[in-house]
Design a protein around this nucleic acid. Structure first.
Length: 501
RNA sequence: GGGCCGGUAGCUCAGUGGUAGAGCAUCUGACUUUUAAUCAGAGGGUCGCGGGUUCGAGCCCCGCCCGGCUCACCA
């Protein structure tokens, strides 16, 4: 018999014995008077004398993380909501069934307890237990108490274990949740309405990416998982929802890396009567406050850098190429506006695509501190409004931090005739083999024909903001269940079946 | 998809061709303020999978699976 099977056998036997003592191995509702983190917060500063007069009674629950048995007494650390509290159980302080139950406990079991708060000889805040409740039996062994779970693959596949034993992992996901709620609260305060638009779309659009395809059986149609919600959100602005936002998943059928997961979370928001200049200022406020709400400061520690969201610098894309150029041949501002120079430094077909590629190569990785890059070429921005002073460019900006794009915003193109031309320009790119160029979306053009007010729109990559604020250099560390290949047979059902009387 | 690295007990890891190991965890015993508790003993392994070389393979060679990093693509 393998060790794992033997452990399951032992623990099922213990569960049977626990039942024999009058407890349920998978218990019932438990009405606690306290949460462990609240006990720790309330009494950590109290002296032993203060805790004795008068004694404080508590009833709480948690998972057993460590146990030290010493014959007729013992200690254990219980964990709840990421916080640990020691309990002290002695034979002459609880009834006989309770003591026998204590003797049957395993690390990982979930129990409830009642008792009084005290401080041990060594000074640790603890609970002197007077009654134990049994709430849930662990059958498989917990990871090692000291090193925890080091294997990244197991951490991703069995996130429940990672969350149980890795405080830093738990903290990252709590911080991520604060990021989301901060964005949501700030938008709500400014009158934005949260909406949900289709994730299964007959036509995909709003970004340049390859989609996932799925099929609806009874309608017998192929559908695409959305690569962006953009075109639906702007339809809503046409409909008079002047400030809308959506925080939800996008799906892009492309490479997986430390910065890319096939499904990722995007915030998109649209504000009627605004433009990209308004959004630049708004973005700075939003990100600054998100940092404060999530980590209590505007400065995030990331991969050896101190990234400060308190100030976001701004460059045009041409300025950025000049500013961040490394090594010989640094161009002048005239060079980066010169089609001949651009053509010599990139093999993309148009001057605009060349400029963007040169920017990505020369500058993107160097944009560690939060930076707004604005004035994008029209060819690479099929949904953005032309700049008044140069129709080859659009009123668009992207936000970079930690060398990654974290946001993208523009004044929305609201002229249906121009939008039609842009779609046709994209179709021509598809003809030339660009499989990420935009499709024609006639219903969207029709919506514009009813009048989209001048509007500013923006998308912010939630996962990437979460990465920076949590200091995680892999996107998988801020996604609870990142996409992995299936792991193959697990075999737990068969093991359990063997013990099912 | 390319390159590099990894997969040995439930967990964390040693093991450079000659009898598969340690710590934690588990089991038995001792121990009524311990805290990586301590002490004594015990059990636990298709060494990711499949081939090959060899008298002999965890170790060398080939293929495959899974993962990490990185490049490409992308947000």
């Amino acid at each position: 018999m393998s060790l794992e099977t033997e452990l399951i056998r032992q623990r099922l036997e213990k569960a049977r014995q626990i039942e024999g003592l009058g407890f349920r191995p998978y218990g019932q509702r438990f009405d606690a008077t306290h949460l462990i983190p609240d006990i720790v917060a309330a009494y950590s500063a109290k002296t032993a004398e203060e805790l004795d007069t008068p004694r404080v009674q508590v009833k709480a629950a948690g998972r057993i993380m460590t146990m030290r048995r010493m014959g007729k007494a013992g200690f254990a650390h219980l964990q709840q909501n990421g916080s640990r509290l020691q309990i002290y159980v002695r034979k002459d302080s609880i009834d006989e069934a309770g003591w026998k139950l204590y003797e049957l406990l395993d690390i990982g079991d979930i129990i409830g307890f009642e008792g009084y708060v005290f401080r041990t000889r060594a000074g640790e805040l603890s609970i002197h237990v007077e009654r134990i409740y049994f709430l849930s039996k662990i059958l498989l062994p917990m990871p090692e108490k000291f090193h925890g779970l080091e294997d990244v693959e197991t951490r991703y596949r069995q996130r429940y274990l990672d969350l149980t034993v890795s405080p830093q992992s738990r903290a990252a996901f709590i911080t991520r949740a604060k990021v989301v709620s901060s964005f949501r609260r700030q938008l709500e305060e400014r009158g934005f309405v949260e909406v949900e638009t289709p994730m299964m779309q007959p036509l995909y659009g709003g970004a340049a990416a390859r989609p996932f395809v799925t099929h609806h059986n009874t309608l017998d149609i192929d559908l695409f998982l959305r690569i962006a919600p953009e075109l639906y959100l702007k339809r809503l602005v046409v409909g008079g929802l002047e400030r809308v936002y959506e925080i939800n998943r996008n799906f892009r059928n492309e490479g997986v890396s430390t910065r890319h997961n096939p499904e990722f979370t995007m915030l998109e928001f649209y504000q009627a009567y605004a433009d990209y200049q308004v959004l630049m200022d708004f973005s700075c406020e939003l990100l600054k406050q998100v940092a404060i709400d999530a980590i209590g400061t505007t400065i995030a520690s990331y991969d050896g850098h101190q990234i400060d969201f308190g100030h976001i610098r701004r460059y045009t894309i041409r300025e950025a190429v000049v500013e961040f150029w490394d090594g010989d041949g640094r161009p002048s501002m005239d060079n980066v506006a010169d089609p001949e120079w651009l053509g010599r430094h990139s093999h993309k077909p148009t001057a605009g695509e060349q400029l963007l590629e040169i920017f990505e190569r020369a500058a993107e990785a160097k944009l560690i501190q939060p930076t707004i890059i604005h004035q994008y070429p029209v060819e690479t921005s099929p949904l953005s409004k032309n700049s008044l002073d140069d129709p080859a460019f659009v009123d668009r900006f992207e936000i970079y931090a930690a060398g990654m794009e974290i946001g993208n915003a523009y004044t929305e193109l609201n002229d249906p005739q121009e939008q039609r031309r842009r779609f046709e320009m994209q179709l021509a790119m598809i003809e030339k083999g660009d499989d990420e160029a935009h499709q024609m979306d006639e219903d969207y053009v029709r919506a514009l024909c009813y009048g989209l007010p001048p509007t500013g729109g923006e998308g912010i990559g939630i996962d990437r903001v979460a990465m920076i604020l949590t200091g995680c250099t892999s996107i998988r560390d801020v996604i609870l269940f990142p996409l992995l290949r299936p792991e193959g047979p697990i075999g737990i059902a068969e093991q359990l079946r063997a013990f099912d009387a």
